[in-house]
Design a protein around this nucleic acid. Structure first.
Lengths: 343, 343
DNA sequence: CATGCTTCTGTGAGCGTTCACAGTAGAGAA
DNA sequence: TTCTCTACTGTGAACGCTCACAGAAGCATG
């Protein structure tokens, strides 16, 4: 029966209560709380016991008030929210970041900046120091929010390479180019030579890189690049369908397609089947993302898996390092070829 | 050119700076910040101008330290995270809550309590007063976390009716029973009489209610309840497939199925097509949820839409009311029948 | 003229921490 | 002995805000 517990209900114990309980001063308790340097083993032990007995939990507001740190970080999603929220990978990313941060006992604030108003409010919120750093998921290259945050000196890690921003912004991305290379090499290994491609939007790094990987491998293999085999889409299912139709019209002898996203690949499958081409016998199809759609498609889609779990872990690691004073860093993670029925 | 800006870089303006700038006292600025009661229009104006000029943003830590409120709320997901994260409705819910809270300038903390460890940590975090209230998404009925939080007096709103908890816990749910009734009535209106059902798990309110609605409508319509037409699933696609096979075996004359989730309904479609039954000519199929899968299914699925956007908005409203001192409340929202090709 | 009421304003205290600093004790070196 | 150094401990500030209170001013009422 400790005094501090039997007395008044309600108000949680403070560092003062713990100090009294342990027979030491506030300072000593604080030192134990923050790493325990310059604390005698006896005091250490007494404080820990007192903490356990009182059920003390540090008041983060009081701490933040004086340290200036908030010990929380923001997960910022800018622009077209629907698209990200519909993307199953986004969930993995969000969950991964939350869990990685939880291990450091850091809460994650979810921030959605869809409208101009929200953008302003959130930028203000962040620059006011309410979070120590930001995990940024932005479709836009050269996002104005990112720009502002960078200028305000807020530690920032982007998911995917942000183009348009200065080089001094951290990011973690999958190796799009290498993933594309793997897929095209795989298609070549099946004996296909007339390989089409439906690219992503060419104003995004992903779109550009995947196309680059495609071209590189063909060139290395001595296969001529035929512009009639290249069409671009916008990652939507419909654009995949349209793209495949254009390819069939421009290059009827096509025997494989590398599609820069699984969603588009689904559209491609639809278009091919409608045109009477069998997959994979007549035309092999390779996707990108390894989204859940890849397995529900028929035939099941061969695709490139992006390591979303690792991406989230790395984003958190890099961000925390940056908050700790390290320089911005870029991390590129390897992708993986997942073979299924469509090739 | 204000003094406060030209001087030292870095440190953000405080309420003191604003007071000096506006020629009033801290107290007056504080009053303006908190509703502006008992403030003369002149002072009001001066303070607002000063705030704008200095770019002042309130320091929430200092405020929280004294008010005891944190002005932030938690979005708590307990137990099997994967399932929720894969459910597209979950995204709508999360997004809706975030946005609704943003309108009140309240940040949302994402909290995932998957493991026992995380559970403990998060419960501690919450009961330490780091959030003012919790939006709970729990699959489990009688969730231990919910129980603990309730006992600690933390304002709480659950998504879906929690069973096992006392009646004094707030929740917001779709009207499962009424949704089921609508669907079965719809099937009846098509002239179907041998209507099967694949229920959800019968230890969840949703599962129970949807089955109850089914039975009610049939009874009202004078159609006999045939136990051979009732099988239960677990919301998974596979269980839908298995359920349909069982139904076909037990009641080959079945001319319609009400399936308690879209995912299961997809399985049902697969099984029916494999058995050579045409949908909707031979067997009409009705789902539940209106998930994106409903439109990608072929034929497109007639289903019951749950008003997730409204659910999230109501959850936030009820929670804020409860934080403001109101009593717990239960809100049941109407569903909507969405007719597509499968009926 | 005192009294009360309402509206408005400034002031000190204090929320629970951390931080800088001062101070103590003990060990070892001069 | 005295001095220095290290390991440890306690004590006042702050941090930036809100709250309670005291008071001032204006106006109507007794």
């Amino acid at each position: 029966m400790t005094m501090s517990n039997t007395g008044g209900r309600r108000r949680p114990p403070t560092i003062h209560d713990v100090a009294r309980e342990a027979g030491v001063s506030r300072g000593t308790v604080s030192r134990v709380l923050n790493g325990g340097h310059y604390v005698s083993p006896a005091a250490q032990e007494a404080v820990n016991a007192a903490i356990r007995r009182t059920g003390y939990v540090v008041n983060r507001h009081a701490r933040s008030l004086i340290t200036g740190r908030s010990d929380s970080i923001g997960f910022l999603l800018t622009e077209p929210q629907e698209r990200f929220f519909e993307d199953p990978n986004f969930n993995v990313l969000l969950r991964g970041c939350t869990q990685a941060l939880a291990q450091h006992d850091i809460p994650l604030l979810l921030m959605l900046a869809g409208t101009e108003d929200e953008r302003r409010r959130i930028t203000r919120y962040i620059t006011a120091g309410h979070v120590d750093g930001v995990l940024l998921v932005s479709s836009h290259s050269g996002d104005p929010v990112a720009q502002e945050l960078r200028e305000a000196g807020v530690p920032l890690v982007a998911c995917g390479k942000p183009i348009g921003l200065g080089s001094k912004v951290s990011y973690v991305a999958a190796d799009d180019r290498d993933g594309a290379r793997d897929m095209v090499r795989h298609l070549l290994s099946l004996g296909r030579r007339r390989i089409g491609v439906v690219t992503g939007p060419l104003d995004t790094p992903g779109g550009v890189e995947r196309l680059a990987g495609y071209k590189e491998v063909l060139t290395e293999a001595g296969v001529e690049i035929d512009e009639r085999l290249i069409v671009s889409g916008d990652y939507s299912r419909a654009s995949g369908e349209a793209g495949a139709e254009r390819l069939l019209a421009q290059a009827p002898d096509m025997d494989a397609v590398f599609v820069a996203s699984d969603l588009m690949a689904q559209g491609v499958l639809t278009a091919l089947q409608r045109a009477g081409r069998r997959v994979p016998q007549d035309v092999a199809v390779g996707g990108f993302d390894d989204s859940p759609a890849a397995v529900t498609a028929s035939p099941e889609l061969t695709t490139i898996r992006q390591p979303w779990d690792r991406i989230s872990a790395e984003m958190v690691r890099v961000l925390l390092a940056q908050i700790g004073g390290e320089d911005p860093a870029a991390v590129i993670l390897p992708t993986e070829l997942v073979k299924r029925e469509s090739t």
